[in-house]
Write a protein that binds this DNA or RNA. Sequence first.
DNA 1: AATGAATGAGATTTCATTCAT
DNA 2: CATGAATGAAATCTCATTCAT
Lengths: 215, 215, 215, 215
Amino acid sequence: MAETARKREGKGREGRRQRRIVRRRREILAAAARVFAGKGFAKATTREIADEADVAEGTLYNYFGGKREMLLAMAEEMETPFETAMIAVSGQDDRTAAIALFEAAFAFSETQIPFVRALLSEAWVDDELLEQFFTARWARVEERIRAYIARRIAAGAFRPFDPALGARAVVGMYLGLMLPVIRGIASLPSPEECRALAETITDLLLDGVRVRVES
Amino acid sequence: MAETARKREGKGREGRRQRRIVRRRREILAAAARVFAGKGFAKATTREIADEADVAEGTLYNYFGGKREMLLAMAEEMETPFETAMIAVSGQDDRTAAIALFEAAFAFSETQIPFVRALLSEAWVDDELLEQFFTARWARVEERIRAYIARRIAAGAFRPFDPALGARAVVGMYLGLMLPVIRGIASLPSPEECRALAETITDLLLDGVRVRVES
Amino acid sequence: MAETARKREGKGREGRRQRRIVRRRREILAAAARVFAGKGFAKATTREIADEADVAEGTLYNYFGGKREMLLAMAEEMETPFETAMIAVSGQDDRTAAIALFEAAFAFSETQIPFVRALLSEAWVDDELLEQFFTARWARVEERIRAYIARRIAAGAFRPFDPALGARAVVGMYLGLMLPVIRGIASLPSPEECRALAETITDLLLDGVRVRVES
Amino acid sequence: MAETARKREGKGREGRRQRRIVRRRREILAAAARVFAGKGFAKATTREIADEADVAEGTLYNYFGGKREMLLAMAEEMETPFETAMIAVSGQDDRTAAIALFEAAFAFSETQIPFVRALLSEAWVDDELLEQFFTARWARVEERIRAYIARRIAAGAFRPFDPALGARAVVGMYLGLMLPVIRGIASLPSPEECRALAETITDLLLDGVRVRVES
DNA sequence: AATGAATGAGATTTCATTCAT
DNA sequence: CATGAATGAAATCTCATTCAT
């Protein structure tokens, strides 16, 4: 049942304090993400982050151990909608499932983008972050796609080809469309556009570009 | 004839000097690329670059105006094999042409990778560099693919779909395979692997994953 | 009333902070002036300035944008006692007025000297500084002297000669006496010496060195 | 007797070599003076001096031990026309002698100015240079003027006043007129102007500005 | 004797982090 | 807990001088 925030977080004053701390932490993290996204982690200064979050520099250190730790916190707190979507679509036919997944994957919120952009930026250069943010997360998605393809090939529904390669190609198609958005040189697609993109790309994947030659 | 080199590069001593300068410049640039690739542009220090190039720090400034200028020099001097390959394949059938192009695109040399990795790293964050290195180069490739697709659709050879989207999907597939290589978490494919990758991916693109349903 | 300081400078803690900042800024500027005076602007290092001011190097940059800005701050904050003195003496006879002016001009404080020495040093070489510090300030003094001489010639009190030249000669006499002091090879005159200097120099100016030939 | 340069400097080839070296040394020194005059000793770079002298940087070190030594060479080689002029005028009446001296002192050549400007600039800040260039030279001039004034006072020709102060005032008048020229904000006076300046200033000195009151 | 590339000491400046208030 | 001035390590860059050619 819908317990009050009071009950959830504690008793009265203490609960309010806790909630304020959590909220402030999130604000700082979002500010940091925006700054990192704009200039990259290394070029971002704590001064800028503090200004963006509208707190003093020293305050940052009450919530995070340092600049680096903010980045790691982002990596940890990033949500992965794919995972849940993936489970939701099991049992549906290829096309319906693929479209639903792509649609979910395209659906970024405006505020999430800075986080992803910041993390991608550093993961490109920092092995520890790549491991935490990517290999551990993204690779799981790819693995599931691979397994799915393998199953469909075994079932005779898909032509025989390397499923790992296929999975990577699928992920690649997605990247090709989303990277420009995350980089900030293409605009975030509206829900309708997400749907359309998902459909087109699914059809490309399933049937290719070529007109079927009648036998 | 002993005159050849002389004539090509200049007059004896002066020519030798010129060649030494060009060679040294290239060595420094390669060293810088390796360092940038490893830690990203911003975290790389001139000290490290100098060490990697085995010269004194001051020497760097005899060849480049500064760190940033090295990056720009990389962007300018990057070769783009795609372009030439693209012209070479005109007039062949879809499959042969696509395979040849992908093969050319996969064929990076070991020494080129640090350059690309370094440039990608900064282009993710630096708009000027993105413009110079990417939008101006890469976008041209995409545009040509788009035009090709549009022509094939008009000719009735391809199913009707948004050619821009298709082009981006093609580029995306390529990215999905090459980014891990450039990032350094997958190994550079051998020439044979390049060929195999090119074939598989081409077939996926042309005919999709699905087994054709007999009519 | 205890409220006075509060009201003047601000509200308690904030006022104290402001005053501390202003004080610190002045300390640093004085330290910089001493170092500049000793070795010239270009040879002075931020390290030395920091040591002289007994702060860390980084602290300098919390108060000034850099070495050059310190110099400009000096130029701006320099007081010009001449101006005020000039106005004060209007209406008095030639001799009284001239003596008062010279006396005011000779009255440098020990702490002002490094500022003037530092500024002169750079103004000798830097056109922008010369403009800001000198042409704009000093030239006004000369101009007023010129106008005065011109008036007195018109009134028949002074012999006819080029007033501009005369003004420059007056300024020159002053320079001849003060430059060694500012340079640090002559000692600052005591108030009594200032008075004596002013009288002697005034008499030289008004009547020359020659004994009057009785007619 | 007008010996040929050949005989003076040596025999044939060797003499030519010697003369070339001397000439080159002078060229470099003049170039250095121009650069020092423009930006001050400390901000001037050996690169600029080499460019100005149209030789390679390394060549400078074949003629001078280093940057500093160029400055000292300037101080040594500076001519002092005052000295000779001073002797030439002995025995003439006050006015004629003073005019001749001032005229000689105003007569700078265009090429001498950079030397003086460069030396003044550093002497303002460098005690060793001040000693060599000034105290040792200039002070002698002042001393002679002082002695002259003392003699004339003793002879009853000049009013009684501190002769040292008078000497300094005379030098000061000269400075007031020449400093702007050396600094480069006033133009070098033509020979006619020199004469006029000398006369006006001499009359000011001897008789002052005031019209004589008839007794 | 002339050259100019290489050198590296040293200068300026930035900025993450600390800590007294 | 918030603040922001102080810190000093570290980074970039300059330039007088050397030395092999």
